[in-house]
Amino acid sequence: MNRFRRTLLIAVPYLWLLLFFLAPFIIVVKISLSDTAIAQPPYVPVFDPALGWAGLKDFLSALDLESYVWLTQDSLYINAFLESLKIALISTSLCLLVAFPLALGIARTSPKRRPVLLMMVILPFWTSFLIRVYAWIGILRSEGFLNQFLQWTGVISEPLAIINTPVAVYVGIVYSYLPFMVLPIYATLEKMDGSLLEAAIDLGCSRTSAFWRITLPLAAPGIIAGCFLVFIPAMGEFVIPDLLGGTGTLMMGKTLWSEFFSNRDWPVASAVAIVLLLFLVVPIVAFQRMLERQQEAAR
């Protein structure tokens, strides 16, 4: 391929991502260092290139860490962060508990049935996320299907309060992110050599210990990938805690949203975004390394 075409091919997607993915973060960092103001846009300082070097100097000296200091002083933000971490960790574990047996079940059916079952796992993912969360409101609320059913069977006499609690958020996250956990686990289980298990059992291993000592370790890459795919977006989730968690459930994504839309405090909203991002950088980079290694291996 000639040099010009090669450069052009790289440049178009590269520049697009630089402009629409990387550059915005620099702006977010800048605004997180600014102060709120009753103006349009609602923050100072605003950089004016017409003022030249002196303008740039004034501009830089007006930036400070006030928004970040504010985040540490108000317990609301620290609680929101801890709550996000707790909810994301619990939901990721629950998701793994539901997804693993499902992935294993699919991997053990006949090869002919597997594509259909896999499609059935993916199908709900293609339908609107918002609709899937909405469906759970009808199930979990106090006069919802679950409470009706439990009262009808006589298990409970008073409706359970599930909606507007963290439990509803766990259910919502597990439900919405299930395919992201099932697919990578299935991919590793499907490649697994069944004769390893047979050998273990022939050599006197019980089925249970064969599972713990062979199936699980071999499925580890899929489990790790699935946990990344669920944990990272769950940390910043907005829709699920907002619709199912009620006002009592604070999460980072919700805090960011309300700082921006309700309080119109752009510097604090930006600071929340940066803190969330800094926290997620480690898992995101680890995840990316893993994908790259897998791609290298496939080549």
Binding site: L19, F20, A23, P24, F25, I27, V28, I31, F228, L229, I232, P233, M235, G236, E237, F238, M252, G253, L256, W257, F260, W266, A269, S270, A273, L276, L277, L280, P283, I284, F287
Partner: peptide, 15 residues
């Protein structure tokens, strides 16, 4: 692929 939507939305709006 994994970046929370709120961060992408906010940063693009500010851009």
């Amino acid at each position: 692929l994994v970046m929370p939507d709120v961060i992408i939305g906010l940063s693009l709006l500010l851009l």
